[in-house]
Design a protein around this nucleic acid. Structure first.
Length: 734
DNA sequence: AGCACGCCGACT
DNA sequence: GTCGGCGTGCTC
């Protein structure tokens, strides 16, 4: 007897790195890839996603269970998006079920319909035939409802209430008699405008050239690098490209860093286009997210703007992908499914056959390495005429110049000069809190976190110390627990800089901008408004200041401590520091006056700083790329990182050693292993962390090894005592 | 990840 | 006598 059922491979939201085969009985209809299905799984019933239709299974039929129901009429992922997601799961070696589920809005991870639904009333067959004959002549309201439904076929409760002057009670009575019924139907996508409401600004030659080239590439895959300093008009280029994409009837996908998705950015798009926008970011609730997702999928939204995860937004007619601030680290997910939205966006554009535009004032070294091979894809935007003079970078040698509470005399003098000229001053320090250490001058004791290998940070006006790594908030001792001497805060955080500056410049209104001071919703917006109105004269802040916001009246930027990224074990730290310095320097001198940037350092002869000063970001990047090539780091080679953490001190290293032994039994030709080594901060939140680095000339050997190695690693007994994860193309080495 | 089974310690 | 601790194994 042949079983008429077909077999489907289903991905399920579990950490299991495989799909599960199920039977589909013929009466359910065809289960197509991308559709959600309800399936029995162990003792539970779960929502899964069909990945593939199969004629055979490696499992015998008696082991297979049956799909309970097919949830979607239309697949939630079209063929292209499903293929991209499967590719991503394979590339990052992440469980496919988690990858597919992560790409769905939360509401759809349960059974919520993928297309917006509407409840409508309609006549039953019985109602059609008998209602007029059977209803009493005096039942005027009931009769008018029947008449209305005969006319329009379907109507919502609201429509009936208005047009038939009937109440819900009338409808209930009609339903009780079996004349009418209420059913859910799909709500058709609303037709939306796609026009342009505001004209383009006049483009300069660089912008016009970029727009011309990108627009000529529509319909083909090209990776463009749009390289231009802050204020060079990258957004205007995006807007003109999007206009061309909309004119072709296609959609634009725009990815921005988490911190940059501000009301102003959205307003700029809304101003220009009548087309409807779908916005996808972490601040949305489930319903808003679902609606945005549906609009993107139906094509009702012509422009989709979002943060990292929006790279998985469904698009009916993809036309272009734009990644603003492509160097930004927030495009890499740092836990769970550790994908790079930037890299996946390039893959998506390639598979869709559309151009992708990577925009930045400080491009990633990956992008610059690509430009060395494909120089024709570089689109450089020159400075605007008004800002023809780039800000002047100067080093202040902290060993020569005394620093009062972190601010050197030359910096103080420059601040005075710029304030007296009526300008604003920005002090940048990438360290929150009052002081990074609480120290005893008597015996050398310092306050450490009980659960981390880190100092506790002092916060002003708080009885408690704070661990910036695990969030612990122990009480601050007034005296040293060892020798009973009074303890004192050592070093500077933004709070202490704020205090010092307020003492030295008591008449200059000051704002501190960091995660602590901007905790409340809307506070950042309010402060930025006070800065724009020139009410604030001195800005003190962390990297929160460097992202996206323009401060036209700032003419002096002081980088208070450039040394934190100078001697890191992470080969990417110098790239990050250079980007940070150039980004913060970009806040200076937007208007008529040239800007001045002072960088305080104990290492003025450090090659990174020398390169930056002499050659700007290009100079630095050239040097850094040479160094990466010589020492064999990405983008010239490929790496992956196996991390592990455990409450037992040796468990993580034991696991990684076992994993390394297994790796050597697999096809690991061309792969070098570094470690296992303890993470730079070995203990964090009470867990001991270690890592094993894999290094190869190209991705191929890594992929070949991981495809057989990771399943073996999963089965190791040592794995039971640890939490482990794999990071392909890690952005940070710890 | 769930969820169950299973085998050993302190309690209504 | 049971409730429940978390080690181990399984999910088409």
């Amino acid at each position: 007897v042949t079983d008429p059922s077909t077999i489907v491979a289903v991905a399920i939201d579990t950490p299991l790195r495989r799909v599960f085969d199920y039977l589909v009985s013929p009466e359910l209809g065809e289960a197509r890839p991308g559709q959600r299905v309800l399936i029995p799984f162990g003792r539970r019933q779960l929502v899964g996603i069909v990945v593939e239709s199969r004629s055979h299974s490696a499992w015998t039929v008696d082991k297979l269970r049956s799909v309970v129901a097919i949830i979607d009429r239309e697949p939630v992922f079209d063929t292209e998006l499903l293929a991209l997601l499967i590719w991503a799961a394979d590339y990052y070696r992440h469980p496919i079920g988690e990858v597919l589920i992560a790409a769905l809005p939360t509401a759809m991870r349960a059974g919520t319909p993928s297309i917006a639904q509407q409840k409508v009333w309609r006549l039953t067959a019985h109602g059609h035939e008998r209602a007029d004959a059977e209803l009493s002549a005096r039942a005027a309201k009931q009769r008018s409802v029947i008449a209305l439904l005969r006319q329009v076929n379907e109507a919502t409760t609201g429509q009936i209430e208005q047009q038939a002057a009937a109440s819900v009670a009338t409808l209930r009575e009609l339903a009780r008699r079996g004349y009418v019924e209420q059913v859910e139907i799909a709500l058709d996508a609303q037709e939306t405008a796609s026009g342009i409401t505001a004209p383009s600004l006049a483009l300069n030659a660089g912008q016009a050239d970029a727009v011309t080239k990108i627009n000529a590439s529509l319909g083909t895959f090209v990776t463009w690098l749009l390289y231009g300093v802050t204020g060079s008009g990258k957004t205007e280029v995006y807007l003109n490209v999007i206009a061309a994409v909309l004119a072709r009837g296609a959609q634009a996908l725009v990815l921005v860093p988490e911190i940059a998705l501000t009301p102003q950015v959205i307003a700029r798009f809304r101003e220009r286009f009548a087309a409807s926008l779908a916005i996808l970011h972490s601040g949305l609730n489930d319903t808003q997210r679902l609606n945005a997702w549906r609009d993107a999928r139906s094509g009702a939204a012509r422009i989709v703007i979002g943060t990292r995860s929006a790279v998985f937004a469904p698009l009916r007619t993809p036309g272009v992908i734009i990644i603003d601030e492509e160097h930004d680290p927030s495009f890499k997910q740092q836990d769970g499914f550790r994908y790079s939205a930037r890299d996946l966006a390039i893959v998506r554009a390639q598979r869709a056959g559309i151009p992708i535009v990577l925009g930045s004032a400080t491009p990633s070294l990956e992008s610059l390495a690509r430009i060395q091979k494909q120089p024709e894809t570089l689109l450089s935007l020159p400075r605007r005429a008004a800002d023809a003079v780039p800000p002047r970078l100067t080093l202040i040698d902290l060993r020569k110049h005394a620093a009062a509470q972190g601010i050197s005399t030359p910096a103080l003098m420059a601040m005075r000069r710029h304030l007296d000229a009526g300008n604003q001053v920005l002090l940048f320090l990438n360290r929150r809190g009052y002081a990074p250490v609480l120290f005893c001058p008597g015996c050398g004791w310092a306050a450490h976190c009980k659960r981390c290998d880190a100092h506790l940070t002092v916060h002003r006006g708080s009885e408690q110390l704070v661990c910036h790594h695990c969030g612990a908030e122990p009480l601050a001792p007034a005296q040293c627990p060892q020798c009973l001497e009074p303890v004192k805060p050592v070093g500077q955080g933004t709070e202490r800089i704020e205090e010092t500056v307020a003492q030295i410049f008591p008449d200059a209104p000051l704002a501190r901008i960091d995660r602590d001071s901007m905790r409340r919703k809307g506070e950042l917006e309010a402060t930025l408004a006070r800065i724009r109105s020139n009410e604030i004269r001195i800005l003190v802040g962390t990297q929160m200041l460097t992202k996206g916001h323009d401060f036209p009246n700032v003419t002096l930027v002081v980088v208070l401590n450039a040394d934190q990224g100078l001697f890191s074990t992470d080969f990417r730290a110098s790239e990050r520091l250079a980007q940070l310095i150039i980004q913060v320097a970009g806040r200076a001198g937007r208007a008529t006056q040239p800007g001045e940037v002072l960088i305080q350092t104990e290492y003025p002869a450090h090659p990174l700083l020398t390169l930056l000063l002499e050659g700007g970001y290009e100079g630095f990047a050239q040097g850094a790329l040479q160094e990466r090539q010589q020492s064999g780091w990405p983008p010239f080679t490929r790496i992956a990182l196996l991390r592990a953490e455990a409450t037992q001190p040796a468990a993580a290293t034991n696991f990684l050693n076992a994993a390394l032994r297994v790796a050597q039994q697999h096809a690991s030709r061309g792969i070098r292993f570094f470690g296992p080594a303890p993470a730079p901060m070995e203990r964090r939140a009470g867990r001991y962390r270690a890592q094993l680095l894999l290094h190869a000339a190209t991705h191929g050997p890594l992929q070949r090894l991981m495809s057989t190695w990771i399943p073996a690693v999963e089965g190791l007994t040592e794995a039971r005592q640890v939490r482990w994860s794999l990071d392909v193309d890690p952005a940070e080495l710890f």
